[in-house]
């Protein structure tokens, strides 16, 4: 194929322009987070003075346990991700590599539940949490989120795409199902596992309504509730709010930049076949 130089330059220019436009809100956010309060509403984006202390302020403001919220969010998201990846991959193995009677019907049930608005599950779930005594506890946020139909679905799609011959060969070598799962299938579904890891982590890091309903103590808040709390108690101080938002967005960007290669692969493999 012939490649014209001007075409290539043009493509790059267009892409750069779109990227810049998409990033403008973030650029505004970061610049505003560095402004002193008086300048926040001004049309000029560039801060007259760079007030890096805004970032210190959000961690030291009284009654804003920002550091603790940060830890809570990361910890809860981490635990949920860990448990969900394990339970989902086990279930996905059961749904994809073993043939049994009710398999496909149960799987269909799993799929169908994804079509019901999740909001309606919350009230019965809340009653269950009360029965289990998990109100205002970390476990109350972790346990219900650790079982997901979507995760099972995603990993199943990966496992379905692995040729049957792999397990057959292993079985001839005398491996039992657990060994097939642990040593052959799981390593082969790595892109799927990573994709699920990222989705689950992000989903729980951003999770918003369930924690609001569940949590009572300020030091147990997660970042989204913390941000809402911040907005309602000090929302006038847009610069501090923006600093808080910037801090809460950074882990997500880091996760994406580190794992993006796998994510892209995972989504592409999982999605096209799904």
């Amino acid at each position: 194929m012939k490649r014209s130089k001007s075409q290539f330059v043009l493509n790059n220019l267009v892409l750069t322009l779109i990227s810049l436009l998409l990033c403008l809100p973030f650029i505004w956010m970061i610049l505003t987070s560095l402004k002193p309060l008086e300048d926040v509403g001004k049309a000029e984006w560039w801060p007259k003075i760079f007030l890096w202390s805004n970032y210190k302020t959000i961690f030291t403001t009284e009654h804003i346990h920002y550091g603790r919220w940060y830890f809570n969010s990361l910890f809860i998201a981490f635990c949920v991700t860990f448990l969900q990846v394990i339970t989902s991959s086990l279930a996905a193995f059961g749904f994809s590599r073993i043939k049994w009677k009710w398999r496909d019907r149960i799987f269909l049930l799993y799929l169908a539940t994804m079509m019901v608005p999740a909001l309606i599950l919350m009230i019965p779930n809340f009653q269950i949490m009360i029965e289990m005594g998990l109100i205002d506890s970390y476990l109350g946020l972790i346990i219900p989120a650790s079982f997901s139909a979507f995760g099972t679905f995603l990993i199943r799609q990966f496992m379905m795409s692995i040729p049957k011959s792999f397990d057959e060969a292993a079985e001839i070598d005398g491996a039992n199902s657990w060994q097939v799962f642990w040593q052959i299938i799981l390593p082969l579904s790595r892109p799927g596992l990573i994709t699920l890891t990222i989705f689950t982590f992000m989903g729980n890091y951003n999770s918003f309504f369930w924690p609001i309903v569940m949590l009572k103590s300020e030091h147990k808040y997660t970042l989204p509730i913390g941000l809402l709390f911040f907005e309602s108690s000090q929302g006038q101080q847009t610069n501090l709010l923006m600093a808080a938002i910037t801090m809460s967005v950074i882990p997500m960007i880091l996760v994406f930049v580190c794992l993006q290669k796998h994510l892209v692969k995972g989504i592409q493999l999982g999605g096209v076949k799904g």
Partner: peptide, 11 residues
């Protein structure tokens, strides 16, 4: 106990 109270007073 402050965060998001409107949502949870009832429930």
């Amino acid at each position: 106990e402050t965060g998001g109270i409107d949502n949870k007073k009832l429930i």
